[in-house]
Write a protein that binds this DNA or RNA. Structure first.
Lengths: 191, 191
DNA sequence: CGTTGGCTTGAGAGGGCTCAAGGCCAGTGG
DNA sequence: CCACTGGCCTTGAGCCCTCTCAAGCCAACG
């Protein structure tokens, strides 16, 4: 829980009183590996904040391939914004790769929180912008050849690279697990 | 100018008085083909709103290839948010593909406008979310094979497909102009 | 009428894919 | 304690999609 208020406090200033009031807006949920936080077709009802463990957001395309949009570990947010805001069925799945704990908050509580503690609304705004910038980076990222994508991933998220199974990393990079295995082999030899 | 207030009015409600006051916050600029609205390395100072004509936002990668992030025609917004907000050098270029006219507004004026007419702040928020959703779609889009990408592009933006030179479309799809030419040839024969 | 920009077409190369088989644990049950 | 199983990673062979490089066509334009 401290992780959440710390994360907010890093971007905007909170009074001691506000820090105490924030947790009440959230619901804590223990998560288990393979558990779904959201399934394709459902309407997404929450913003999720990971306290412990690891989740992934992905779609399953027409060919049955799983395309990973993003991972989320301690201190990161995750949701399907489009589904949450417009209350329409989600195209995505969110599931748990590593058991742990999340905080969730629904739309009503979120807006209430924004009204009660405006600094949080400001924080949310900043986070949203960062997320847009990250999406933009990811689009350019996907134009690069596979080897560069892997190297950029490793240098940007070293803690993810060691923590995730390789086939998940491959699904994030947009290549097959076999190709990733070969890339790694090539890199290991070359160095 | 009516295009702008119409666009805002489509998402939030404005009083007749507000509609009259909005234009004063913007600066109108005639644009010429090949003109830069932003060059790599510069700090982006404006949000742009296209009144007439067509622009593109792109980066030039290490190999010298132009990767198009998005096009903008009448009624669309365009900027480098990351550069604008954090006043850091942009990685992107924005240039004019078709002469026309744009409205531009700097950060100070934008925030002033948000304060003076809160409905516009609300509008901006909605637009930002839509743009995030679009970026997300684009990431999944780029995982699909080239033919599907082209077909999806044509059905989503038929007016762009006819209006843009093919090599620009190719740069948006993430393929070479030669490949696009062959895809089109194949489609034309098959139907 | 030559130049230029946009589009097409061809040949060859290569990056990444599919399909298939095999190795290496860690966990589980006999 | 050992055999078995399932998950994960690797390796190989062949193929296909897309790329590069090169040439050629056509329409617009000075």
């Amino acid at each position: 829980m401290k992780l959440l208020t710390d994360s907010i406090g890093k971007h905007v200033s909170l009074t001691a009183d506000e820090i105490l009031r924030i947790p009440a807006y959230f619901e804590s949920v223990k998560t288990r590996r393979h558990q779904y936080l959201l399934q394709e077709g459902e309407i997404c009802r929450h913003e999720f904040f990971v306290l412990k463990g690891c989740c992934r957001q992905y779609e399953i395309d027409a060919a049955g391939k799983e395309n990973v949009l993003q991972f989320s570990v301690e201190g990161w947010w995750m949701t399907d914004l489009d589904s949450l805001l417009h209350e329409k069925p989600s195209l995505f799945n969110i599931d748990v790769l590593e058991s742990g704990e999340i905080l969730q908050i629904n739309k009503q509580q979120l807006y209430k929180l924004f009204q009660d503690i405006p600094a949080v609304a400001q924080y949310y705004h900043i986070i949203s912008q960062r997320s847009s910038a990250a999406l933009q980076r990811r689009i350019l990222f996907l134009q690069k050849p596979a080897l560069e994508r892997y190297q950029e991933f490793v240098s940007r998220y070293p803690f993810l690279e060691t923590r995730l199974p390789q086939h998940q990393v491959a699904a994030y990079l947009g290549i097959t697990k076999e190709s990733l295995s070969r890339l790694r082999h090539k890199l290991a030899k070359g160095e």
